[in-house]
């Protein structure tokens, strides 16, 4: 496992270096800038953690669906719908009363929203025979449309609709944060708890075992008396719940409003994180941290090194390739293995 991860990271670094070289950027200097830009000060680290939280939550959710052999591409939309429902609940609380209760309700609503969106993809697959990748992609478009419609329609700021999002909530509806650091300890704590919980669920519970069994051989699992379709829906509920929570934190803990890019592509990135982690619960948060650093650290790269800012897009693209290559290699070495191993 450790070897596999090291190999993956080597491949990732190799690919990235190659892209930088091709773009005429000095790789070492670029890496120095990325490290400086992400870990250079406490403020920067705070930024990294802010990215790490939704990334890790979405990754936790994906571990359930990957374990049962589903490609839950819809995770991106699940983050968005989570954000939407959280915004909906928080918008009802402008009178300044019961801030904590409303926040708790908003987080639950976010999880429920993500789960609902995931279940729709799940039913499209189990009942309608639509592959979960297409169902998920379709629902992602719908979710993005919903977010934009709300921002420019019913929830527009007084006077003028704007790309900057809905009106900012009153401060008592923000998740409490540490003054100097601007991160919410509650969000951080819940994320860490989610990792431990996921590890526990996958390893120690019957549900976790069922996910693995069905993901490895659906037909045989059925003959053993398991219910593959119902279990798939349940896995989707878990995945959507965690993704929805990520969306909730984006709204209640980071932006304090709904913005068009509320999910920031973290759902898609989380897919990459989990694949590069070899579908391991314990490696995923580390890889998520690595990507969070890359994400935050490369913001300044174009300015400092006079590179085109689209380069980070190219880098992410190559990383997708690296992830797929690793996935293929792993599937080959396990012969017939899907996203079912690790733990």
């Amino acid at each position: 496992m450790a070897l596999e991860t090291a190999l993956t990271l080597t491949v990732v670094l190799g690919f990235t270096t190659l892209v930088l070289l091709l773009a005429g950027a000095p790789p070492l200097e670029s890496y120095r800038q990325i490290v400086k830009g992400s870990l250079g000060s406490w403020g920067k680290v705070t930024h990294v953690i802010k990215v790490w939280i939704p990334l890790t939550l979405a990754a936790c959710g994906l571990l359930y669906t990957f374990r049962i052999g589903l490609w839950n591409i819809g995770v991106e939309g699940q983050v968005m719908v989570g954000a939407v429902l959280t915004t909906y609940v928080l918008r009802t609380g402008s009178d300044g009363q019961h801030g904590q209760y409303l926040l708790a309700a908003a987080l639950l609503a976010g999880m429920a929203g993500g789960a609902l969106w995931a279940v729709m993809a799940g039913y499209l697959k189990t009942r309608g025979g639509v592959h979960e990748i297409f169902a998920g992609l379709g629902l992602n478009f719908v979710a993005q449309g919903l977010v934009l419609w709300l921002i420019f329609g019913p929830w527009k700021q007084p006077g003028i609709a704007s790309m900057s999002g809905t009106e900012t909530f009153a401060e008592h509806l923000w998740m409490p944060y540490l003054e100097g650091l601007r991160i919410s300890p509650a969000a951080l704590g819940m994320t860490l708890t989610s990792v431990v919980l996921t590890a526990y669920m996958l390893r120690a519970t019957r549900f976790g075992l069922y996910l693995k069994a069905i993901g490895s051989n659906e037909k045989a699992a059925f003959l053993f008396g398991l219910r593959p379709q119902a279990t798939m829906i349940l896995a989707m509920v878990c995945a959507g719940g965690f993704a929805g929570l990520a969306g909730s934190f984006q709204v209640a803990g980071v932006y304090h409003r709904l913005i068009p890019a509320i999910s920031s592509g973290y759902g898609y990135l989380a897919l990459l994180v989990v694949m590069l982690s070899g579908f391991s619960v314990w490696v995923s948060p580390l890889v998520a941290f690595f990507f969070a650093c890359l994400n935050v650290g490369s913001i300044q790269l174009p300015m400092v090194l006079q590179l085109d800012s689209s380069l980070s897009g190219v880098i992410q693209g190559t990383l997708v390739m690296a992830a797929l290559a690793m996935h293929a290699m792993r599937a080959r070495s396990r012969k017939g293995g899907g996203p079912d191993a690790g733990g």
Binding site: Y210, A213, N217, A220, L223, F224, L226
Partner: peptide, 20 residues
């Protein structure tokens, strides 16, 4: 290995599937 047993699961895991 196509329908009977689950590739990737151990004997113990198979036993666990059937009980409790």
């Amino acid at each position: 290995l196509e329908e009977g047993l689950i590739r990737g699961l151990t004997v113990t895991e198979h036993c666990a599937l059937g009980e409790g």
